[in-house]
Nucleic acid binder design. Structure first.
Length: 419
DNA sequence: TCTGGGGTCCTAGGACCC
DNA sequence: TCTGGGGTCCTAGGACCC
């Protein structure tokens, strides 16, 4: 059996843990740059705030309805996530952390255990240990566990936050209840196509002809169908090294200046390199893109990206930054108002298995230098040591007007309680 | 004025080989 | 009108996830 444990309204819940006066109140969390809503408490959902609501369109509404607003604080969410996952891992050694707020847990050899009770115990321990509310769905396959999870989340009182699909009757009932567009693995495109042929529920989908599914949704669709039929097709997946790493940002305001973009691209490249070194990989290609504001149809648009294949694999900040800047110089055009840019490194090879190139090679000295820089930055805060091409005064800031303290990761931000 | 960021997997088609 | 057969590798784009 598989459990799918999902934190309810995760980012909003994280904020609320440290401001319990907001329990029962509507809150929303903004994306980077305070652009749009990416997490809502149940109360905010009930007031009709949609996912992705643009800040500039909804600000007034939030004020009028007493909705508390937070800027995204990913340091906080990442740390809270780890705490939740640590507790969950106690329940079974076989766990797949599926996203920042979700984990699949496999129960093998648990035949004599009452899984409903185990689920309730998960809920109890995570709530007690972190203050984050969770929902638990348990079923014979991963996608059925996803379905069960939705039921637990939708009917917390009836289910005690835990729903178990453990027989055919419950499976049918659950699939009949779940709308096709809400099935895990069915996105907007497939949902539309399926609805067009009369498939309204998950159950309808499982009744389709295999051939139709194969032809229209390929192997992925067929696997999903099997899994929903209760035949385990999707297994836990091992945590793997990333296959590409991206740092992309929207800017506050528009920027025409080349300097500005050069600084941003260099900084993004350095962060990519740091993440590469963290997983002991080197990249063989670097992609850089720059974009104007796609929402401003009144302005001239310019979107370009370029992929640079490197002569040798590297994870040196200096080299990756240089390549990224070289790439930028190729695609940069004067006269446009840029809104967004990014660096993506891809095509990785193992750090210690990199091929020696006869003619050109990564400077070995960089390796030691990078190790030292990583060490210093780990001790004194991120990017205390920077390249000259990066903003030396760290003046660039994204819009984060409602940022909460880093309650759990920064000593000076820890809540003080007077006794 | 103002609309996020970071991933994965699969497939079709092009370029190439014999 | 008709012009083989069998492969591999790579890439862009689509679809999906959170």
């Amino acid at each position: 059996m598989f459990a799918l444990v999902d934190c309810n309204n995760f980012y909003a819940s994280c904020q609320r843990v440290f401001q319990p006066n907001l329990v029962g109140k509507p809150i929303v969390v903004y994306s980077n740059n305070d652009g749009c809503v990416i997490s809502r408490s149940n109360e905010a959902k009930a007031l009709g705030v949609p996912m992705g609501a643009a800040a500039y369109q909804w600000e007034k509404f939030f004020e009028q309805n007493g909705i508390e607003v937070f800027s995204a604080n990913f340091a906080l969410y990442g740390d809270m996530s780890q705490r939740v996952m640590t507790i969950l891992n106690d329940f079974s050694p076989e766990m797949e952390v599926y996203s920042i707020d979700e984990a699949f847990i496999k129960f093998e050899g648990f035949e004599r255990f009452n899984l409903q009770h185990i689920g309730e115990s998960m809920h109890h321990r995570v709530t007690k240990g972190t203050g984050i509310p969770i929902s638990v769905g348990i079923a014979p396959t991963k996608s059925l566990a996803k379905v069960a999870n939705r039921i637990a989340k939708k009917f917390p009182e009836h289910t005690n936050n835990v729903y178990l699909i453990d027989d055919e009757e419950k499976r049918i009932k659950a699939l009949r209840w779940l709308k096709i567009e809400d099935v895990w693995g069915i996105g907007r495109k497939h949902a539309k196509r399926l609805q067009a042929i009369g498939v309204k529920t998950a159950l309808d989908f499982t009744m389709l002809d295999d051939k139709w599914v194969q032809e229209n949704m390929a192997i992925v669709g067929l696997r999903l169908k099997r899994d929903l039929e209760g035949k385990p097709t999707l297994d836990l997946e091992e945590a793997q090294q990333k296959k590409n790493i991206a740092i992309t940002r929207s800017f506050e305001g528009n920027h025409t200046e080349r300097d500005f973009l050069e600084e941003r691209i260099s900084t993004f490249a350095v962060t990519c390199a740091e993440k590469l070194r963290l997983q002991k990989s080197c990249c063989n290609s670097v992609m850089v893109f720059i974009q104007t504001n796609r929402h401003r149809v009144d302005l001239p648009q310019y979107n370009r990206n370029i992929l640079l294949n490197l002569q040798f694999p590297t994870n040196s900040s200096i080299e990756i930054s240089n390549f990224a800047l070289q790439a930028l110089s190729i695609i940069f055009r004067e006269g446009y108002e840029y809104k967004r840019a990014g660096v993506i490194v891809q095509d990785f090879t193992d750090e210690d298995a990199t091929q020696i190139n006869i003619f050109e090679n990564s400077d070995e000295r960089h390796k030691k230098l990078m190790q030292s820089i990583d060490k210093v930055n780990a001790m004194f805060g991120q990017q205390k040591i920077r390249l000259g091409s990066q903003d030396p005064k760290k003046t660039w800031k994204m819009k984060q007007e409602k940022l909460s303290p880093n309650y759990t990761t920064k000593l000076s931000d820890i809540i003080v309680i007077r006794v």
